[in-house]
Amino acid sequence: MIVAEQKPLDEIKGLLGEAQTVLVVGCGTCVTVCFAGGDKEAGILASSLRMASRIDGTPKDVTHITVQRQCEVEYIDPLADSIRQADVVLSIGCGIGVQALAERYPDKVVLPGLNTSFLGLPSEQGVWEERCAACGSCILGVTGGICPIARCAKQLLNGPCGGSQGGVCEIGHETPCAWQLIYDRLNAQGRLHLIEELQPAKDWSTSRDGGPRRITREDLRLAAEAAE
């Protein structure tokens, strides 16, 4: 899932500026699961902003609403009336949600309330870890199901570097060495031969380096669109 965390309240207050009527929009998908931008967080944030604005002597009208998925237009279409009444929209969806709202309501100022952090999973209660860098060319088949692009601090394809010690990455004690994990798993599975081969230079053109990405599935496009 997409993992995000809320921006500091002061930063959000700064973004809102003089706006009087604020609509906080939560999202019911990834950011609900990681406790950053669901209905509960939208309610708490709206309430915090109301209180803060009163303390600052410039009370704002802050309300909140949550949609199931901010990243699909069908789910944000019904917000038209609420959004029309607000000076600004504060999205606490991920960066995709913010942009979906901004695209659907181009006249409205849409602001981000979260920092979208990474694609990952909860490794324990209250802890999330990155697992995928969306590089567009998956190599998990040769790395024992552990991604060195997302999980090695240097994105090594022929790791580990000399900084791996006691299973820990040189950047810090909280970060496991991805290549130690890869070695351990492939060793246990008797498949170390997979990483004895040289991994050639990666084609990064499928990653962000190739420019913004787009996938077109002709088999799924609507007939009218395809006929254009």
């Binding site: 240097k154 994105q155 090594l156 394809l157 022929n158 570097c161 040289l198 991994q199 230079a201």
Partner: peptide, 8 residues
């Protein structure tokens, strides 16, 4: 950057 690693 790490476009390449040392082996590459």
């Amino acid at each position: 950057v790490h476009d390449l690693d040392s082996v590459q």
